[in-house]
Design a protein around this nucleic acid. Structure first.
Lengths: 231, 231
DNA sequence: CGAAAAACATACCATATAGTAGCCATTCCT
DNA sequence: AGGAATGGCTACTATATGGTATGTTTTTCG
């Protein structure tokens, strides 16, 4: 009896997830306002009232979508920022790689966070901004830690942390799976840039697993392609 | 007669500009779809048909808005990228400062470019993306030039240029006129970060007009505030 | 096997808003 | 001053879409 109830609940959660995913796909393609509930329903092969048995309104669907995506985006990444083990350089590299990977691999989701925020209620927007600020502060704290330990050299850690956030979160606008670099290569590259931005003393050895022939590599992108060089 | 016609034309252009500005303000606050033409009209103290004597449709209004804002955003900045005079470092610093300044001082406009792009026609979106790509390429070319001349040290100039773009264009999401730093200070700071990102050999002297007591300043933001430290 | 309840569809309503037709006033030229 | 033309407004329509009331099918359980 209890098991049956749980199973039902699980099914319900699963269907909810399916709806959210279908909605996200459409929101990403057409935007929230231009996506109708009929669109969402028919993309799942169901009808509008079906959606309404899971969500009270179009708005609440968007709100839950934001909750899911944000919690997934921050999941684990915040841990990397706050971790006690590892040098600041290592933590910055790990953070940048994971954060960027999430941003590009799920860019249909992360893009929505940026483009549809206006459709949320003012309270929700405020809450999100507040969380975002705390997140930024954690990154700034990591940079400060690095400076204190003499690993980094940053004049204004607040600005630097926002710069790093920016270069990562901008990626969804230009990244393409068909691009020249694999996601992992891109993440390595960006992590290296984050280190340089932080003025890390011993940068390019930390970021890439294969440190080439010692020291920093100069010149254009070397012919180290792991995937077809498209475009 | 001809002069009178010109005057009329000028007035018309001016009113058009006013409409676009009013629309931009509302699009920034509420988003394109949630802003009605009645909203725009009444914010100007006129009525909807007035707007329709200047624009064929709500869509064409948005399109012209994009044209105006993009041309203003790129105005001058592209020149800095392509300039023949000046070292790559100087050009990168100048570019970053001006580009960032435009992005933050007119963030209600530049934010629209990012958040309302979906509402344009596919053709228009493609055209914008193409222009954007050319722009990115110009920045990458500047970086390559710097590498060639030995001023910069960048492994992948394409990725680095996108990182710089990102850190600049992300600013509209966190910048506040009430913030700790003045726009100029912020631009100096960011320009410095761009140099570091490019691996410039002699970075911190070029960016700031007042080079402090020689060399790079470490530690947190020094007490060099020119405006009230809010928050 | 039969009844009840859950799951989902059909058909509908109310509302908001892009866009328009026709009217009034103001200005400008002769 | 008178008439014409421009500029702008009042009032309307058509349509799209969020949301719902009611029906129908399927499943579940005694």
């Amino acid at each position: 009896m209890k098991a049956a109830l749980d199973a039902k609940k699980t099914v319900r959660e699963y269907k909810k997830k399916l709806i959210i995913e279908a909605a996200a796909k459409l929101f990403y393609e057409k935007g929230f306002q231009k996506t109708t509930l009929d669109d969402i329903a028919s993309s799942l092969g169901v009808t509008k009232p079906f959606v309404y048995t899971y969500f009270n309104s179009k708005y609440s669907l968007l709100e839950e979508l934001f909750d899911v995506v944000y919690s997934d985006l921050y999941q684990g990444v915040v841990g990397l920022l706050e971790a006690e083990e590892g040098s600041p350089s290592e933590r910055l590299v790990a953070f940048t790689k994971v954060y960027l990977l999430k941003n590009i691999e799920q860019r249909s989701f992360t893009a929505i966070l940026l483009e549809e925020e206006k459709n949320l209620s003012p309270e929700k927007i405020e809450a999100i901004r507040k969380t975002q600020k705390e997140f930024d502060n954690k990154l700034a704290a990591l940079l400060r830690d690095g400076v204190r330990r003499g690993e980094f050299e940053v004049r204004d850690t607040a600005v630097a942390s926002l710069a790093i956030s920016g270069m990562v979160r901008w990626a969804h606008r230009w990244y393409s799976p068909a691009g020249r670099l694999s996601p992992e290569q891109l993440c390595d590259e960006m992590a290296d840039l984050a280190l340089k931005l932080a003025g890390a003393k011993c940068q390019s050895g930390v970021a890439s697993a294969a440190p080439g022939k010692g020291g920093t590599a100069t010149g254009r992108a070397a012919p180290r392609r792991r995937r077809a060089a498209a475009k």
